[in-house]
């Protein structure tokens, strides 16, 4: 049968051709587009509001970083006379405050933490034990293993006392300079008011403040506790919150360091931010906001990234040093000059 238009004339073949092409085009278009809806708002995890920081609250500005020629940087430390130590795979590198390399020491393995004594000895936490180097980098001692479960995440030295945070056993171990275990600190003991460390992941930091008081992070409780060398608890403060004033997630603050005026610098994993607290534990402002550590804004929230902030230190000029695993660099932040 011939199809005709209203005037009774047959519809020309070219019209059929065009109509067929259009019909095929529509079918292809419909088939190639994914018509399924994208996940609704209720399925999205929204944290952008916590990632944004008012620039007026950022009190530090970044300086030229140090980029050590050592793969897999894992640990950072400073010494009172202005040296900066960074450890990574098979090496410890020493820098001056100007970022120039002073020395390089070969080691075996990758330290999980690092500290320097007042006389320049280098203490390396090697997962389950401590190794000591002389100031010139020559090996001095290897202290006994703390056991199969031990996982050293932080080490700090003050005079004759060495304190190491053992995340595996959830305890702080106090050593003497010869590596003898003198004291276990922080085991839960209700009779002494010690709550016990909650360490859900290997983020468990220890340090000394400007007066020489020892502080340990209690990461699962989102705060810090100070102890006497006898193991007696002096004080504690906890601030669990995702808001800027607090610490969120399972294990924060991930790292802490005190400045010479007693103010406290903290890093966090999850929401990668660096903050400054006053001596009375009030948030003063930000050293660096999450965007500082990620090229894209959502990079801060990619679960494929481990936290970029692997260690923290304050140098003798009170600058804040952050070991950035993404850039394999020591990022340096200096307080802005007050107006």
């Amino acid at each position: 049968m011939t199809v005709r238009n209203k005037t009774g004339k047959p519809i020309p073949a070219w019209v059929w051709g065009v109509a067929t092409v259009i019909a095929i085009g529509v079918v292809v278009l419909l088939a190639s587009k994914d018509w399924r809806r994208d996940p609704p708002q209720s399925f999205r995890y929204e944290v952008a509001q916590y990632e944004r920081v008012d620039p007026s609250r950022v009190l530090f500005e970044e300086r030229e970083p140090i980029t050590p020629d050592v793969p897999g940087l894992t640990a950072l430390a400073t010494s009172p006379e202005g040296r900066i130590y960074a450890a990574g795979t098979n090496a410890v590198v020493v820098y001056g405050l100007d970022g120039r390399e002073i020395a390089r020491h070969a080691i075996n393995g990758s330290p999980t933490c690092l500290a320097v004594t007042a006389d320049g000895e280098i203490l390396l936490g090697m997962t389950d034990h401590v190794e000591v180097l002389h100031a010139d980098g020559k090996p001095k001692a290897r202290w006994p293993s703390l056991g199969e479960r031990a996982h050293l995440t932080s080490i700090a030295a003050n005079g004759e006392d060495i304190y190491a945070a053992d995340a595996g056993n959830r305890v702080v171990v106090r050593f003497d300079r010869e590596g003898n275990v003198v004291q276990h600190i922080g085991k839960a003991d209700a009779s002494k008011g010690i709550p016990g460390f909650v360490v859900p992941s290997p983020y468990f930091d220890v340090t000394f403040d400007n007066t020489g008081t020892f502080w340990a992070v209690n990461p699962g409780r989102h705060g810090l506790e100070s102890y006497r060398s006898s193991g007696a608890l002096i004080s504690a403060w906890y601030r669990p919150s995702i808001e800027a004033e607090g610490f969120s997630g399972c294990c924060n603050p991930s790292h802490v360091a005190f400045r010479s005026d007693g103010s406290l610098v903290t890093t966090e994993k999850g929401l990668a931010r660096v903050k400054l607290y006053s001596v009375d534990q009030k948030l003063v402002g930000f050293v660096a906001q999450p965007a500082t550590f990620h090229d894209s804004p959502m990079g801060a929230f990619s679960c494929k990234l481990e936290t970029p902030l692997v260690d923290l230190a304050v140098d003798s000029k009170d600058r804040v040093l952050v070991l950035d695993a993404n850039k394999n660099a020591i990022r340096i932040f200096e307080e802005k000059a007050s107006e």
Partner: peptide, 14 residues
């Protein structure tokens, strides 16, 4: 929906 997966990965142990 993976919402909890994201929260756990960001702030917890994954």
């Amino acid at each position: 929906c993976a919402k909890c997966v994201k929260g756990c990965g960001l702030f917890g142990n994954g």
